[in-house]
Simulated assay, not measured.
Amino acid sequence: MVAPREISDVDELRTLAHPLRQRILRHLAQHGPATASILGKALGESSGATSYHLRMLAKHAFVEEVPERAHGRERWWRAPVQDLRSPRAPEDPEMRALVEQLNQLKLAADQELFAGFLARRAELGEWADALPYSRGSIRVTLAELHEFFDEYMALLKRYQRPVEEAPADARLVAARFFAFPVPDPGAPQPDDRT
């Protein structure tokens, strides 16, 4: 099981909070190892741009080379299975802004991914209705919410594996955890205090 890695360095967060780098990471996670040229074609970018961003991601171990696939100067990259976690309550304003930017990028990508699923659902055969969905609320303390999240992550990790280790009939399935405190409408707001 992969241990959680909290991203607590501003430079690491800055690296992750870049739109093209997020697209590169998503492509590698979905399609497996690729070269800068393959990524450039798939993402509509130049291979020079994808090569640069791959090196920036590699600097912080967000991607790694696949030496057994290299031929001459051609470099192959993969996104290792990782449990990357943003700081829970960054006090530094820049860190907080970067975490918010990264969350916005991820949420926008999730919405686009789900819209793509809905648009092509009819093409998915037996997978078309593989849409487990649950909405619920829990009344917990902050410590219990952290524990709940850790238990969710442990369950998710049980099923994570690199694309090259997946059975032939396996599909990539997006699983998302989204929890937030419901504001109490009767509670005084910070600017309502006298």
Rank of each mutant, 00 (worst) to 15 (best):
A122W: 02
E165N: 14
E165K: 11
T35K: 01
D169Y: 07
R85A: 07
E74V: 12
R171N: 11
E112I: 05
A119Y: 07
M56C: 09
L172E: 13
H60N: 08
S51G: 11
P162G: 15
E64Y: 04
Q160G: 07
E123P: 01
V140A: 15
V81N: 08
A79L: 04
V140H: 10
V99Y: 01
V66L: 06
H18P: 01
A109G: 08
E12C: 06
D9W: 02
N103G: 14
D110N: 15
F178V: 12
T194M: 10
V2Y: 08
P19K: 07
D110C: 14
M56E: 07
R78H: 07
L107S: 12
T35E: 00
A36R: 00
T141P: 03
E65Y: 05
E151H: 15
A17K: 00
G40S: 08
D192F: 10
M1D: 12
E151V: 12
R135Q: 11
G125Q: 13
R78T: 09
G48C: 05
M153Y: 07
S51A: 14
H53A: 02
R21W: 00
R88K: 15
D191P: 06
K41H: 12
G186E: 13
R88I: 11
H53R: 06
A89C: 10
R139V: 15
P132G: 07
H71F: 14
L156T: 15
Q104V: 05
L102T: 00
A143P: 05
K157R: 15
E94L: 05
G40C: 01
Q30K: 11
T15F: 01
V81D: 07
A187I: 10
P183K: 06
D192L: 11
Y159G: 04
A42W: 00
P185N: 03
G40H: 02
L107Y: 04
K59V: 09
Y159R: 10
